[in-house]
């Protein structure tokens, strides 16, 4: 492979990697914000993402609603669902025994339930495509070819990341969420409403996942298994450091770019295994992830 082709592949890999990476980054952000405050790796995040896309599709197919109604409705539906799960189910599970395993299994239960429900509606029987708001005309950046849709995806994703960053750092609700992540008891002592903050975090996480779902939906074929993308988001979160929000974003872009470069330079079948090799490498060399703080020792 001569240097010109190499340079072209490199540009294309990085450009496409940033597009898919921005979606992984959003989903990883959604996972990490829940983990930071509730200490639960939410195994249903991928299914929440899937349900958001199918909810939008459902409104389009069965009611023929216009996009400006469909998108807010799907977002709202996902947010409400996540809050309901946290307040109605997870809170009860926490009270029942409170072991981390039990919480994980409950989210796993949710993932099965959601996938089953979508299958039951019959919408998932055949792969579906989601209408795109933005045209898919090609755009050339450097020597890399992207589409207008790709640019819109990256733009929206970055705007959402910025909004989450501002929310966490400069608002009262954001401070409450950070306090909850640091020490729930102390947070309660200084007057933070723990229950409301938990519900808020889950709702916000649902919102971010739903946005990432609606962004990527026009680019992929929808199936009830599309929630598998969450595996890449988990990989991104691990690579970045599982308790770091900036780490999740960084990890998302790393995984996206790594995947595309491996696809171009090695082989298409090696794409699937890239994130796992990245995870194992990062965890063996730097177990807390790239931007994760020092792992805390549990008290005896």
């Amino acid at each position: 492979m001569d240097s010109e082709v190499l340079f072209l592949f490199l540009q294309q890999g990085i450009a496409s990697g940033i597009v898919s990476g921005s979606v992984y980054a959003l989903l990883a952000l959604a996972i990490v914000m829940i983990f930071k405050t509730s200490e639960v790796p939410n195994f249903a995040q991928g299914e929440v993402f899937m349900v958001a896309a199918y909810a939008a599709l459902f409104l389009i197919v069965f009611y023929g609603l216009p996009m400006w109604v469909v998108i807010p409705a799907a977002l709202l539906f996902t947010v409400a669902g996540m809050m309901l799960f946290e307040a109605g189910i997870l809170r009860r599970v926490k009270k029942a025994l409170g072991e981390p395993v039990n919480l994980v299994i409950a989210t796993l239960g949710l993932s099965f339930l959601l996938r089953g429900l979508v299958r039951q509606t019959g919408l998932g029987d055949t792969p579906r495509s989601f209408p795109s708001l933005v045209s898919t005309d090609p755009v050339q950046i450097g020597q890399a070819m992207l589409t207008r849709l790709d640019l819109a995806i990256v733009g929206t994703a970055v705007a959402v990341m910025a909004a989450v960053f501002l929310l966490f750092n400069f608002t009262r609700a954001g401070r409450a969420m950070r306090a909850l992540g640091m020490n729930p008891k102390a947070a309660a002592l200084v007057g933070i409403d723990i229950r409301r903050t938990h519900a808020f975090v889950w709702g916000l996480s649902g919102l971010v996942s739903a946005i990432s779902a609606l962004l990527i939906a026009p680019k992929i074929l929808m199936t009830p298994e599309m929630g598998h993308v969450a595996i890449l988001a988990f990989a991104a979160a691990i690579v970045g450091g599982f308790n770091s929000l900036p780490g999740a974003v960084l990890g998302g872009f790393i995984i996206g770019i790594a995947e595309n470069l491996v696809g171009l330079f090695v082989s298409a079948s090696a794409i699937v295994v890239t994130p796992f090799l990245a995870i194992m490498a990062v965890l063996v060399l730097r177990p807390q992830g790239l931007l994760g703080g020092r792992p805390q020792m549990r008290k005896v």
């Binding site: 409950a106 239960g109 993932s111 089953g116 039951q120």
Partner: peptide, 10 residues
């Protein structure tokens, strides 16, 4: 099957 699994777990 999936819905039953999910409900049982939850």
């Amino acid at each position: 099957q999936e819905m039953t699994y999910g409900l049982i777990l939850i």
